Each structure stands twice: as structure tokens, then as C-alpha cells.
Amino acid sequence: MSKRHMKCLAGITVSTATALGLAAVPSTASAPRDLVVQPGGSIQRAVDAARPGDTVLIEPGTYRESVLITTPGLTLRGTGGRTVISPAAKTAKTTKAAKAANACATGGNGVCVVGTKGHTVDDVKIRALTVSGFTKSGIWASWTDGLSVRGVTARKNGTWGIAQERSTRGDFRRNTATKNGDAGIFVANSVSEEGGATDTKGTVVLDNAVTGNRIGVTARRVRNLVVDGNLLAGNCSGVFVVGDESKPAAGAMTISGNRILENNKFCPATPRLSAIQGSGIVLTGSEATVVRDNVVRDNVGTTPLSGGILLFKSFVGALNTDNSISGNLVRGNKPADLANRDTAGKGNSFVSNTCGTSVPAGMCAG
């Protein structure tokens, strides 16, 4: 055994490890450790005790708390659906000190990874757990680099299932995001400030199952990411790329190999967006985005954003430019499989797409 194991009950202490017969395991001050949290214990206490490189292992159970991670190189690992993180019970009073200690909870989030502009939190891994019922996000990240979220279920959270802003090189893979109030997976430059698109430096959204949300995957004012191999079904919209007039523009991303099926839930208009229903892939104000080799079927609605794959002028007037839509199978979508509703945009191409209907006519290969 190469790692030192410690049990986290009321706290994390060397005496507890000794009682478990683990103190004899050779270790050094810098050796990675496993800190184990059992039902009734505090995940946050374990996280606070962890050093870079440590793993916090969460045993099966329901943990009613929010978890704030500011330590780089930390791994938070559960046991899949048997490890559930849910909101803490409401209390009559919450002290100022308690609020300051866990801004994740006061923000309405489940698990937060938070750095600052001058000091990102790097290489945090979140694995195999469920976050459910938070008023804001299941997982929230800001000012991070190399965050990896895999095998996580984010369900019934009020806004986003898994969300990242002001961050680079995120890796969101083989997760389930279902029945969240807005996007199942959300990648943005900033949720609180206007400005040009952030270069995510290769963030990937791969092989996730995203169902029953308002929008499956939202990429808002970002560049340089990949959305590939995901199942997006039963949302109001499958994939939504959002740009505006700021520079650099959103785009330079690849949306490929996804199955985008029956995203026919109806979502009413918001202050930022009209009503949506039956939208497969929507590009607004995007440049140089590649949409290829997706299966987009049976997305049906009557809103301006309804249809299989659409180009739409952004709601602040930004045009789509130099986007490539090719090799997609687009069938059974209404009012059209392909729709270019941004005819003022320049350099956009529709090539070799298998579809039945298009607006304007003539864009289908068969």
C-alpha cells in the first residue's frame, strides 16, 4: 500500500488512523493520502484537511452539505449513485462566519471549485457522485484550469447541472445531467460580466447523457472547445452556441458525433431568450464553428428557434460567420431539418447533409 488512509468521522486525526491500524503505513509529509468520509462525517472537513494530490473518498450515503474546493490537485471521489450530495437542512440562523466559510452553500451550489483571476485552482478531479436539489448548480467552477468531472450525476438543480466560467482546459466526460432548470452542462466566459469570448484552451464535453433540461449543452461567449459523442434528448434545445457583438466572437469550436433526439420540451421565454422548443443545434453570433457528423432527429416545435440545425442572428444582432455544417444526418425535424435564418451572415456553408427539408430550400444532399 503506497497511500496513507485516514478516516474522517468527527474530524481527521492521526489518532483515528492509529485506531484503525493504519499508522504504520510508511509515508512522507508530501505523499498523497486517501481521506475517507463516512456517513455522518463532513466532506468539507476532509477537503479542508487535504493537501494537493490527496483524494477525498466519500463512502455510500447522503451528505447534506455544500463543498467548496480551493486546493489544487485534489480528487473528490464517490461511489456513483450511492454517494449523494444534497442541500443542507435550513436552520433558523446562519452565522456570518459560517457563510464566509462556505460561499458555495450561500450561492446555492453543491460542489464548487473556485480560484481567483490571479490564482486559478488547477487539476481538480471530481468523480462518481451525485449532486441533486441545489437552487443554483450541482457543480460550479470559476477560475479553474484542468478541472475534470467524470461519472457525475447532476439532477434537479435549479439552474445548471455542471457549470464552468472563466476557466480553461475543462474535461466533462461520461456524466449524466438531467432535469436541471437551465443547461445540463454550461460553459461560459462569465456569468456576471459582458465581454469577448474566452478561449477555453481545449475544454471538452464528451460522451455525456443530457436529458430533460432546458438546454442540453450551452456554450456562451467561449471559443476553442469540443462537444462530441453526447446524447442530448428530451430537452427544449440540444446544443446552444451563444455569441454577441463583443470581440473576440464566440466560436472556433467543434460539435460532432452527437445524438440529438426529440428535444421537444417547451420552455417559455426569458429576459435573455425567446421561447424554445424542438431545437437541435442552434448557432447565434458564432464564427468558424464546425458542426459535423451529428444525428439530429425529430426535434419539433413552433418557436423561431425550432428545427434540426439552425443559424440564427443573435439577440443583440451579431451575425454568424464562416461556420461549416457538413455530413450530418438531420431528419424528422420541424419546421425544417436545416435552417439558415441568418442570411446576412457571411461564409457559412451547408455541405453533404442528409436531410428532407431546408430553409431556404436546396441545402439537403438527400
Rank of each mutant, 00 (worst) to 15 (best):
N348A: 05
T357P: 09
V359T: 10
C364V: 06
G356M: 10
P360E: 13
V351C: 03
G366Q: 11
G332V: 03
C364F: 10
N340G: 07
N348C: 05
V359K: 14
T357H: 12
P335K: 00
G332K: 04
M363I: 05
P335S: 03
C364R: 09
K334P: 00
N348R: 05
T354N: 10
D342T: 06
K346F: 11
N340V: 12
T354R: 13
D337A: 05
M363L: 15
G356A: 11
T343S: 10
P360S: 09
P360A: 14
A336L: 02
D337Y: 14
V359D: 15
L338G: 04
A336C: 04
K334S: 05
P360Q: 13
V359L: 15
V351E: 12
V359Y: 13
N353T: 01
P335V: 01
L338V: 04
S358F: 03
A339N: 00
S358V: 08
F350A: 03
V359R: 13
R341N: 10
R331N: 11
G362W: 14
N340W: 10
D342V: 11
A361C: 06
L338C: 07
A339Y: 06
K346C: 04
S352P: 00
M363V: 03
D337T: 00
M363C: 02
L338D: 02
D342A: 07
T343V: 12
G366V: 08
N348F: 08
V351G: 00
G366M: 09
N348T: 10
C355Q: 03
P335Q: 04
D342C: 11
G366W: 04
G347R: 08
R341F: 12
A339F: 01
G332C: 05
G356Q: 12
S352K: 12
N340F: 11
C355S: 05
G345K: 07
N333S: 01
T357F: 01
N333Y: 01
V359I: 14
A344N: 11
R331Y: 13
S352W: 10
R341T: 05
S349H: 11
D342Q: 09
C355H: 06
C355M: 07
N348G: 04
G347E: 03
S352H: 11
F350T: 00
A336G: 02
K346W: 09
A336M: 06
L338M: 08
A361W: 03
P335G: 02
V359P: 00
A339H: 00
L338H: 04
F350G: 01
R341Q: 09
A365K: 10
P360H: 14
G366R: 15
A365R: 03
P335C: 04
N348K: 02
D337I: 07
K346E: 12
M363D: 03
C355F: 07
G356V: 13
G345V: 08
G347D: 02
V351H: 07
L338S: 02
G332L: 08
P335A: 05
A344K: 13
